[in-house]
Write a protein that binds this DNA or RNA. Sequence first.
DNA 1: CCTTCGGTTCCAAAATCTTCGAACGATAGG
DNA 2: CCTATCGTTCGAAGATTTTGGAACCGAAGG
Lengths: 104, 104
Amino acid sequence: MTAATDLTHPERDAIVLSAVLFALSDPDRLEMVRQLRDGPMDAANCTALDPSIPKSTKSHLMKVLREAGVIRNEPNGRNRTLTLRRSDLDQRFPGLLDSVLDAR
Amino acid sequence: MTAATDLTHPERDAIVLSAVLFALSDPDRLEMVRQLRDGPMDAANCTALDPSIPKSTKSHLMKVLREAGVIRNEPNGRNRTLTLRRSDLDQRFPGLLDSVLDAR
DNA sequence: CCTTCGGTTCCAAAATCTTCGAACGATAGG
DNA sequence: CCTATCGTTCGAAGATTTTGGAACCGAAGG
């Protein structure tokens, strides 16, 4: 049934460089990724640069990151847990994520 | 009159991460950057994935890379020399360029 | 000079992305 | 059950990018 709770994620080997770079090229999306650096978070606590954006907009930002393979978005009770796909990204594109996150 | 030969380039410290990631997120642009990895090239020899694209389109691809601070584009006789701004990028975002170029 | 050879600029059309309200879905709690 | 909460999906409008033809520009060569 592909309920709204089962979102699709690309396999590690299907992650595409261009899509990852594009996903990270937006400041709001990058900010969210930075917040996930130290571990998973509930979506509610993970905010974009402007925390007052509508939820549909925020949902779309998460979607771009998820479809690019940057984050995982899984149901967790009545909210959702976001996880940075660190090891998948590190294996596929060694050094990329760290260099982006370390950039000031 | 700011001749067409004097194109503007951002200072090293003015290079913005988002713009660099965006510029590299296009396969055609990335291909051109890869070709510059081993040294400067004449623009005529540096091609996108599809070598038959119109010259105005190619010029636009180069513009995005240049304005993001990824490449330098300087007049050279009656053509132009493209140079990857490797040291500027390495100083500003250590490891980023290599990790992108090393990605298969 | 005049022409040719790269390449840029201008401009408008097409394609893609972003934004956000409204409707919907699933879960936990009363 | 019923409801409130958190998030996704839909759809349409707005903004940004991409594309490519036509005009233009400077440098080199006859």
